[in-house]
């Protein structure tokens, strides 16, 4: 079983962080994992994406061109990648930020108003985690102890006070129905 996640959005939205979280969840669930960022001059504000593979077998290419799951947080990335999702795959779309919907019938699209949910719940800047929570729920990687361990690992000690809020965001995503 191999999950190939492609996460995309603007720099500064926490795309790489959400990718790292998914990779750690995979690692702590006993899988092979790889994480590959797009890199270059696009720091804050530019487009940004990240390939995460979680697999039962050693990973060949860490670069994902056709994801099984797409997590997308802006319209340009949605337009660019929605067509690349593998048939029977899934897309997790921040519907606060992405205009339009996909007409693909061979994939499951989840429209999560993640940015609005984050703002309403005092979790500004954690829309990425809400989407990641929804993704983890839908693919069935939901062992809470594993997820919490992964989150703890991803949050640097200096920002330990952010752990609770991040866990709350994750839970919001997992519990979201739509």
């Amino acid at each position: 079983m191999t999950n190939e996640f492609l996460l995309a959005g603007f720099g500064g939205q926490g795309i790489l962080f959400a990718g790292k979280l998914l990779a750690y969840v995979g690692l702590y669930a006993g899988k092979e994992v790889s994480w590959l960022p797009s890199y270059g001059p696009e720091m804050r504000g530019g487009t940004c994406n990240c390939s995460v593979t979680v697999s039962d077998a050693p990973i060949g290419s860490p670069l994902i061109l056709e994801p099984t799951q797409l997590l997308v947080m802006n319209t340009p990335s949605f337009d660019k990648f929605i067509g690349a999702v593998k048939p029977d795959g899934m897309a997790f779309i921040d519907s606060t930020l992405v205009e339009g919907q996909s007409d693909r019938k061979d994939i499951k699209c989840f429209y999560v108003p993640a940015t609005a949910m984050a703002n309403e719940n005092g979790l500004k800047g954690m829309a990425n985690i809400i989407l990641a929570g929804k993704l983890l729920k839908e693919i069935g990687l939901t062992d809470e102890a594993v997820i919490e361990k992964a989150m703890k690992k991803c949050i640097p000690p200096k920002k330990a006070d952010k752990l609770e809020a991040n866990m709350k965001a994750l839970k919001l995503g997992m519990d979201f129905n739509g």
Binding site: A23, L27, V33, W35, L36, Y39, P62
Partner: peptide
């Protein structure tokens, strides 16, 4: 190369 340098693995 850039791929190995930038990617994360366990």
């Amino acid at each position: 190369d850039g791929l190995l340098g930038q990617m994360m693995e366990p």
